[in-house]
Amino acid sequence: MAEATNAIAEQFDSSEQQHESAWLGLWAFLATEVLFFGGVFLGYIVYRHVYYESFVLASRTTNLVYGTVNTAVLLTSSLTMALAVHAAQVGKNKNLVRFLILTILLAITFMGVKGVEYYEHYKDHQIPGPSFVLKGAPEGELFYYFYFTMTGLHALHVVIGIGLLSVMALLAARRRFNPAYYTPVELSGLYWHFVDIVWIFLYPLIYLISRHS
């Protein structure tokens, strides 16, 4: 059975070579993701420097509790993801499925909190556009534009992650992985940790650094 699922693609000589190629390929992909997000991060840093007062004021109107809870949720989902990969490595298929589902549930929780947060911004007229209101911060709209673009792009990646992990959970339930072949789980894990890392930086940039400065 192992032979059927572990078939080495014809361009490779060994499963080792195949695995290392996929592993490095995903790291190269993550490097592109760093620069993709980097473009918006750069914009945020530039404007926080240019419109310091407005950005500080606007930043204080974000909801620190939601931000912190969501950070905890994502960090925990990274733990469950790491445990899922571990389960795959040692061949505990049931645990693999469980941890994948747990990770997906945490991701959905994150999206739920984010949704509530977005809704409150909407109620407070903090969505950039004609109805935007933020007293005392002339460039507050720019701050919120960044807030929505950065968290929106991140949320898009979370959604892609949920899809990816769901596929992995389905495949795992069909016993498609074993200790000799679990590369897709491992790579999905890398992607998921990367999504976590983006948030690790979004959290201080949006919620923390302007509380007292």
Binding site: L64, I200, F201, Y203, P204, L208, I209, R211, H212, S213
Partner: peptide, 25 residues
């Protein structure tokens, strides 16, 4: 990092937040 954001460290507030983020990463 959450606690530190509630205390005023002046210019060091953002530095502390970013350093902790780097450690987490």
């Amino acid at each position: 990092t959450w606690g530190a954001s509630e205390i005023n460290f002046g210019v060091f507030s953002p530095v502390i937040a970013i350093v902790i983020a780097v450690i987490k990463m």
